[in-house]
Design a protein around this nucleic acid. Structure first.
Lengths: 110, 110
DNA sequence: TGTTCCTATGAACACGTATTCATATGTCGC
DNA sequence: GCGACATATGAATACGTGTTCATAGGAACA
């Protein structure tokens, strides 16, 4: 199905998106390129924190950076990432199916 | 785009999949229901570790449990999760686009 | 050049969590 | 019932990492 390396690689992507602030940063960039300042104010985070997160997202190619004047704009690098994210968002928004509950005692469906 | 709660909820899913062993467990269940023992041997993990991870995955509805005889089988609960994962896997396997490198000095594309 | 604006970086801390060990719970066959 | 098998659980630990504070780098403009 998926070898160990691929699993680790994919998990690394998930891990980066698994932090709410970081996911928020990436999600906000889905609309279009955003400067660090804009991200900072939109998400009400400290500039330093945003910058640290951007560094990781950049390194993982989940975001790309480009300077325009004094500011630096971050955006989704390619359609792969964009589709991945929009897919996930759609799946989140779609209503969940209702299936058997799990017995909290045994951890097993009766 | 995505409000704070939705972001947190989605991030929680990503976080769970962001651990290689946990992702491996879920991925191995894509083929079909697997008992705890099978997962343990396939991934060469300790039984305790697998069980701990299964607990989290169960709680997050990323996996569902069902007993058959002495053993307990885990499987993908619905098509949402399955599609999500297969999408991600496909995106990972597809060849990556080649775009501008980032200047390691400035962290900016030249 | 000096100043201001915008972003990046490094150190330090606090906190969560993945893993292990030991033990408990539960199920089937005798 | 008792044994063996399969899974779950709890405590303890070691490690990573998200956040903050302070500071540095770089670009535009007087």
């Amino acid at each position: 199905m998926l070898n160990a390396d691929q699993t680790t690689e994919l998990a690394e992507l998930f891990r980066l998106l698994g932090e709410p602030n970081r996911l928020g940063i990436v999600a906000s960039c889905l609309d279009g390129p955003l400067s660090v300042g804009e991200i900072t104010t939109r998400l009400s985070l400290s500039q330093s924190l945003v910058s640290h997160h951007l560094r990781l997202l950049r390194a993982a190619r989940l975001l790309k950076a480009g300077r325009r004047g004094k500011q630096i704009f971050y955006s989704i690098p390619d359609c792969h990432v964009r589709e991945m994210l929009t897919n996930m968002v759609e799946h989140l928004i779609e209503p969940h199916e209702l299936d058997d509950d799990i017995n909290p005692e045994t951890g097993v469906t009766p």
